[in-house]
Nucleic acid binder design. Sequence first.
DNA 1: GCGACAG
DNA 2: ATCTTGTCGC
Length: 229
Amino acid sequence: MGESKLKILREHRWDLTEAEAIQLQRELAEKVIRQDAFPEPIRYIAGVDVAYSEQNDRLIAAVVILEADTLKLVESAVVEDTVHFPYVPGLFSFRELPPIIKAFERIATPPQLVVCDGQGLAHPRRFGLACHLGVLYDLPAIGCGKTRLCGDYTEPELHRGAFSPLTDGREVIGHVLRTQRNIKPIFVSVGHRISLSTACEWILNLTPKYRLPETTRLADQLVKKTMAE
DNA sequence: GCGACAG
DNA sequence: ATCTTGTCGC
């Protein structure tokens, strides 16, 4: 039996104005599932990363597929795309998702979890890149940012696994998670179909040695290797 | 008005 | 994101 390709279950236009994009975020944000609701056991994990090359004004997106048990790379895809939306904080996914979707079209092994390089619910309208990707594919997704977009927090303890809540008023929108002792923490939030605590468990599983998850690291390496050509 | 602002 | 110099901690 051949692998069934990953399918987008919710289509929408991408040539939107900023106001239209914000309105779409408000509508799709209601579809985000914030609890563990895995359609299938997690056997493969996808990692996505996008970079901008100012040399040719292009976006380069990489998708990697890791085996969940071993964290071994089983498949990858890299695509180059033109820019269709400016970088606007809060509207990040409208710039980065089109090339990511193109890269996923070239992947034969469907993942059961996606780790994104960017926020999930830790977003002004609770609809960051990880939520957007998760809802479009209706796949469990985790938001994993290197820096903060919004929210308040106190510095977590220095040991690996320590975290402090990322809050917006009384609402906890993510966890600031220390993945390595004495190393700057990362910002973990719910993307779709996963709870915050389970998301942090997976991120710790994916960071046995480095600050960032293996998924993000490998995708980033692929992007940089491609840009050097 | 001022500062903040995923990549 | 990317570039670059300096500084600090391990």
